[in-house]
Amino acid sequence: MTSQIATLLAVLLFPGGLFALVLGLALKGADRRVAARLQGRVGPPLIQPFFDLIKLGFKRTMVPTEASETVFLAAPLVGSVAMLISAALIPIAGVYAPDTELGNLLVLLYLLAVPGICLMLAGSASGSPYGAIGFSREMALMLAYEGPIVLIVAAVGMRTGMAEGHWVTFSLTEIVRYQQVHGWFLFDPIMWPAVAAFAFFYPANLGIVPFDIPEAETEVLEGPLLEYSGPALGLFKVMSALKAVVVLGLGIALFLPLPFTGPLAFVGWLVEIVVLMLVGVTALRVSAGRMRIDQAFVFFLKWPLLLAIASVAAVALAAGGAS
């Protein structure tokens, strides 16, 4: 019973739920502010995403006549809930470790695919031709980036698992604990291909330039989001804010968890995620142009996939050499 309450709290309050939502929105605000600075502007206040969200709450949600209403309204809800749960699966080194039953990388991977699927559903349910193009682009992009991430996760799992004496582990808690003892995978040359592949994965998953192709405003108006308004649009904003926390948190857990405990570890984790957001997302987003979907697809089949395969091979070879 207590474990169920703990899980519920983890999903609703910390580190999922409210905490992740506030953090995600704050990250988005920081992203916009810093992007503006890099572009030579003042930019919006840090808490602008909160204002946006409150504003959307006061607006009406309009359902297009051609849309299938249930799917149209359910898509953002399902996406947000999936992200809420996955935020509870991300360990914060030295502060929070998810329930071993829950804290499984494979579950997380499935949950991470949900927002993409929701966007696809939203696009096709809205009945607009741009939504349909958004659907096909999102699908293509997902096909392109889902392969590498599975391999990356496998490589990390194998590296940890083999060192711990079994074949492979999918427990994030174990991966974090291993790194706390043996140092970051970021500094482990064998893991570098995996790190590089992950660096290609997260912009695509977060849908930022150069991979914001499904939502490209100047090409397909905002694609799947075109027909959304009011609270439903707000839910999509919530989903994307949570996703930023989940994906960046996953990156931290996989490659650079801090070896501290207590408040210091928590503050350290916050610093890590903010730095990742500003350097990895904001700077990238403003300094590049968008790719075309065919270019992105070929690009993903080439580099991240190769790197991911290389990382699995490297881990396997290293383990073979050691034994």
């Binding site: 600075r37 890099l38 572009q39 030579g40």
Partner: peptide, 16 residues
């Protein structure tokens, strides 16, 4: 190149 531009914009501050 974009890094020069970054540096310039950050150094100069907003043009607003």
């Amino acid at each position: 190149n974009f890094l020069t531009l970054f540096a310039r914009n950050l150094w100069h501050g907003p043009y607003t």
